[in-house]
Each structure stands twice: as C-alpha cells, then as structure tokens.
Simulated assay, not measured.
Amino acid sequence: MKTELRVALGDRLYGIERPWGALPATPGRITDLTVGKDGLVHVLLRRDSAVDPEGPCVITLASDGSFVRSWGEKLCVDAHKIAAMPNGGLAIVDRDAHRIFFCDDEGRIRQQIGESHRPGQPFNHPSDIAFAPDGGFYVTDGYGNGRIRRYDSGGSLIASWGSVGTAPGAFLTPHGICVLGDGRVIVADRENSRVQSFTAGGELLAVWDAFLRPQDVVADADDRIYVCDSIPTLSLLSADGALLGRCRPVLNGAHGLWLGTAGDIFLAETNPNRITRLFPVAS
C-alpha cells in the first residue's frame, strides 16, 4: 500500500509526489528544472561529456507530467542550472564551458554570454542565473570567481561584486540566486552554509546562516523565499529572512528548485535521480 506523505511549510500543507513526471531513460542526471508561464516544465540533465554517451540536455513535460519532447543533445558540455525567461524562452548555464545560452523552448540559441571554453571571459564556472523585474539578470560566477554579475536586459554588464572568502559579502560557492520584487538579490552561498541578501547594486543587507550547504533559492510573487539545502530541508523565509516554515520533502537533498503555476513546488534531485512535486492540500 502506497503511503501518502504530507509536509507543512509555513501555513500551508503539501502532499508529496515522487517520482513525478514521465521522464525517459537518458545518460543524464537531473540537475535543475524551471516552469514557463505556459506551465511547461523543462528538466535540465547533466552528463560528463568526456565519458558519457550523448543524450538530451532538456526534457520538456506538460503540467500533468506527461512527456512533450526532449532536445539539446549537443547543446551543453556541463549543464548546471536553467531558468525561464520573463518574456519566454530559457536561460541555460553551461558551467564548465564558462557560458550561458539564451534559447527558445526547443533549443534554438538566441544569444550567448561568455566565451566558450575561455575561463575568465568573463565567467569562471558560472553556476546560476536569475531575472530581475526590470528585465535585467544576475549571474552567480560561481565556482572559480566567487562573484555576482549584473546585466541589463540586452546583456551588457552593469556591475559585479564579491570575492572568494568567508567574510560577509564574500562567497565560497555562490550556487543559487533569485531576485525579489523590490530588486533585492538573494544568493545561496553554498559552501559557507548561508544565504546572503544584497541591494540591486551589491550592498550587503543581511546574512542568514541557518542552513547546511544551501543549493538553490527562489521567490514567489509575495517575495517569500524558498531555500533547499543539504540537511535536507526546504525552508520558507520572509523577504527579511524570518523563518516561516521548514520541512523535509526529499531523501538526500535537491540541487534545483522552482515554483509551479498552480501552487506546486518542484525539486530536482540528483540522488536518487528524479523530480519531487509538492502540491497544496487542504488541512
């Protein structure tokens, strides 16, 4: 008999469905996912291009989890994170090729930031990307540089800040990022086991340290912040960092996190290789 699991996050109760989605067998491991305004769920797969056979970079699922398509067999060297763009399309962080692709929902590239296979031009193993209300975006850069880079909507660099370190405002691995409605920038500083809050221009506002290796951060329309870490827990914070709720919806921790269009919460797990869906239920 299948047991139906429940978790509480703040004032909301969720059921847990795992695994979720009709994912075909591929050489890739699930590393992240995103949900477009149309409700399509785009699952990012990472593989070792040096030894693994070719396979799709992205699998697209309908909102009910049914298979739609797969694509991007030759797109990425080391797919790491994916984000839905505000006006349609997807941004994909190709970490060890030091670049970010902006493409349509079927993988046709519109723009690239960062020179392929040239570390430091400007990225050095970037890890994540998040879009701001003004159409600009921020990149966590990442494993090598320990910096945040801010771009305008056309892809021109506006500012950057941060360095490798443990002091407030520095990063060991800026691994996940999101932007609040008022422009505040929230960064999961994974190996420092903390989340840091900045102004849009990079001024440090707060450091929140009640986490173990936080992997990703996202925010909802009310600027409530969701953080998945390696305990593993999923935490819900106010925009000012107050803890509103905490639960354990996965076995070993999620590498990526995104919010669905109907109140669902999706978690990308690498071990075991699957998606977990949290869906609202009546108390």
Rank of each mutant, 00 (worst) to 15 (best):
T173A: 09
T173S: 07
P174H: 03
P174I: 07
G176R: 06
C178E: 01
V179E: 01
V179L: 08
G181E: 04
D182I: 02
D182G: 05
G183N: 11
G183L: 06
R184W: 03
R184F: 06
R184G: 00
V185P: 01
V185S: 00
I186Y: 04
I186A: 04
V187L: 02
V187G: 03
A188N: 07
D189V: 01
R190L: 07
E191Y: 15
E191H: 13
N192M: 09
R194S: 03
Q196G: 04
S197L: 11
S197G: 03
F198M: 02
A200E: 14
G201D: 15
G201T: 04
G201K: 06
G201I: 00
G201Q: 14
E203H: 11
L204A: 04
L205T: 01
V207D: 09
V207Q: 13
D209F: 10
A210W: 04
A210M: 11
F211M: 09
F211G: 03
F211N: 05
F211V: 12
L212S: 12
L212R: 13
R213S: 11
P214M: 12
P214A: 08
P214W: 10
P214K: 08
Q215A: 13
Q215W: 10
Q215C: 14
Q215G: 13
D216C: 10
D216T: 03
D216E: 15
V217H: 01
V217L: 01
V217G: 02
V218S: 00
D222M: 08
D222F: 10
D222A: 15
D223I: 07
D223A: 06
D223L: 04
R224V: 00
I225C: 08
Y226G: 04
Y226M: 04
V227R: 05
C228I: 10
D229I: 00
D229E: 12
D229V: 01
S230C: 13
P232A: 12
P232I: 01
T233D: 13
T233E: 14
T233K: 11
T233S: 14
S235Q: 11
S235V: 08
S235H: 11
L236T: 03
S238E: 03
S238P: 05
A239S: 14
A239D: 10
D240M: 10
G241N: 02
G241H: 10
G241C: 08
A242D: 14
L243M: 15
L243F: 10
L243D: 10
L244T: 07
G245C: 12
C247V: 09
C247P: 03
R248Q: 14
R248H: 14
R248P: 00
P249E: 12
P249Y: 11
P249G: 01
P249I: 00
V250C: 14
L251R: 13
L251V: 12
N252F: 15
N252D: 13
G253D: 05
G256P: 01
G256V: 00
W258S: 15
W258L: 01
G260H: 04
G260T: 06
G260A: 06
G260N: 05
T261F: 02
G263Q: 07
D264I: 02
I265H: 01
F266L: 15
F266M: 12
A268G: 07
A268L: 05
E269D: 15
T270W: 12
N271P: 00
N271G: 10
N271K: 09
P272S: 07
P272M: 06
N273R: 09
N273P: 06
N273K: 05
R274Q: 15
T276V: 14
L278C: 08
F279N: 05
F279E: 09
F279G: 04
F279T: 02
P280F: 08
P280I: 05
V281E: 14
